[in-house]
């Protein structure tokens, strides 16, 4: 199924794969991330393993996702394509990130390295 959010996640995956600094940034960071769109009820599970975003599934994870990201479809799609600054969206309350402090910074660092 192709939706703006699904497409942006696929392009996000390609960018991570191609970026030379991602291996260092994602080293040892094996996490399951749940991405939820508030307005379209889309749900995606991102699997970070072995320094890569190895899998994107359009279902919720079987167990407890360690990290949950929630926003409107448009905000999520814009964040995963680099069109929006996630920190601004987060501080404005339009993006919600449920994760430990270090995981929150790691997620933001990924976008920082990719687009800043």
């Amino acid at each position: 199924m192709s939706t703006p959010l699904a497409d942006s996640l696929q392009s996000f995956r390609e960018l991570i794969k191609a970026h030379p600094r991602m291996k260092t940034l994602l080293k040892g960071w094996d996490r399951t991330v749940l991405v939820q769109s508030e307005d379209t009820a889309e749900t995606f599970t991102l699997e970070f393993r072995d320094c890569h975003l190895v899998d994107i599934r359009d279902v919720a994870p079987a167990g407890d996702a360690g990290i949950t990201i929630k926003a409107s479809q448009r905000v999520l799609a814009d964040i995963f394509t680099g069109a929006l600054n996630p920190a601004s969206e987060f501080l404005d309350g339009r993006l919600q990130v449920f994760a430990s402090d270090s995981d929150q910074v790691k997620l933001d660092a990924i976008t920082l390295v990719l687009w800043d």
């Binding site: 940034l25 996630p86 270090s102 790691k106």
Partner: peptide
């Protein structure tokens, strides 16, 4: 974390957003 977020939001000098690429801190 607040200083970092402010720096990312461009409401604090840019060095506030420096992260350790290895540790993500």
């Amino acid at each position: 974390r607040l200083v970092y977020a402010l720096a990312r939001e461009r409401r604090f000098p840019r060095w506030g957003a420096t992260v350790s690429v290895r540790r993500g801190t």
